[in-house]
């Protein structure tokens, strides 16, 4: 019995030691679902590890929750897409500096027969107005994500009367605020034969990356208001002394370096470039 216990203790200590060893070159990153779901991170992070020997552990969630992780000191670096909130994050001292990394774009996904007639809308705001006027089903992420943030900006720009949550309607009608991720919102829109504001990467995954067919198509794209810039911010070690600032900063600098930018630009999903390098 004693022998058994001592073996157990040995194992435990070994495990502790090895995890401590591994830990000195690991950082934790909180990021949005779109970077992970689009497959970019699976392509990018191995290259980064090859160059620097640093491993990145990824937690993916909505932009709001990712920033919250940074504020609570649960992550060493955040990689998200909501410029206003990112700047506030840095201004409040939670992050050291925001680096522009890349952008991708949002699209409006909907039924091919386009019941609200938004295919020829002059701009994205007009497209949203037409959806509201037609009372066509519209699915909102409703989860404080970057995508949801953009949707709220578009609704605000339409000048329609909005609720406190910056949505044109609440409850049981044509506007569905579901508080879930991009994939769930796309599936929901298919069920309702409705419209949804989506990031292109997740949409391509659902349209072409699966065996099951996805019937909705891109009905509106290309407006400047649909551009979606991503930024990376190391967590400020002055707020959270345990944050691994140096490693996190290495990661941020690598992303905006020529090498990192080249890796981002060369990533293709189902034959299409998704992210456009944008470092300044």
């Amino acid at each position: 019995m004693n022998k058994f216990v001592s073996i157990l203790v040995c194992f435990f200590m070994l495990a502790l030691a090895s995890s401590a060893l591994a830990q000195d070159k690991v950082i934790t990153m909180s990021t949005t679902t779109s970077t992970e779901a689009s497959g970019l991170l699976d392509y990018l992070l191995p290259e980064f590890t090859k160059d620097t020997g640093i491993t990145v552990r990824v937690m993916s969630k909505g932009t709001g929750a990712a920033l919250k992780d940074g504020m609570d000191g649960n992550a060493d670096v955040v990689f998200v897409h909501d410029v206003a909130r990112e700047e506030q994050f840095v201004a409040e001292g939670y992050g050291t500096q925001r680096h522009y990394v890349m952008y991708n774009d949002f699209i409006i996904v909907g039924p091919e027969n386009d019941p609200a007639g938004i295919k020829d809308a002059p701009n994205a705001v007009e497209a949203m107005k037409r959806i509201a006027a037609a009372k066509a089903p519209f699915v909102s992420r409703g989860d404080d994500s970057g995508t949801h943030g953009r949707e709220r900006q578009l609704w605000t720009a339409t000048g329609l009367p909005l609720t406190d949550a910056k949505s044109p309607q609440d409850g049981q009608g044509w506007y569905f605020s579901i508080g879930q991720g991009m994939g769930e919102a796309l599936i929901f829109a298919r069920e309702k034969l409705g419209y949804v504001l989506a990031d292109r990467g997740t949409y391509l995954q659902y349209k072409f990356g699966r065996t099951e067919p996805y019937e909705l198509g891109i009905v509106y794209e290309g407006d400047d208001m649909l551009k979606n810039p991503y930024g990376v911010i190391p967590v400020n070690p002055e707020k959270h002394p345990h944050a691994k600032f140096e490693l996190a900063d290495t990661f941020a600098k690598w992303l905006v370096s020529e090498r990192g930018q080249q890796v981002i630009g060369s990533y293709k999903l189902l034959g299409q470039a998704l992210f456009f390098p944008d470092a300044k």
Binding site: G62, A65, D143, Q172, G179
Partner: peptide
């Protein structure tokens, strides 16, 4: 969550609302 869809003001229940708030970081 799967059958109700967590629609605000319609099918959002206590548990799905809690999961959502956690996701939002609030």
């Amino acid at each position: 969550m799967m059958l109700g869809g967590n629609i605000k003001g319609f099918t959002r229940t206590m548990t799905t609302a809690m999961a959502l708030e956690h996701n939002k970081g609030e």
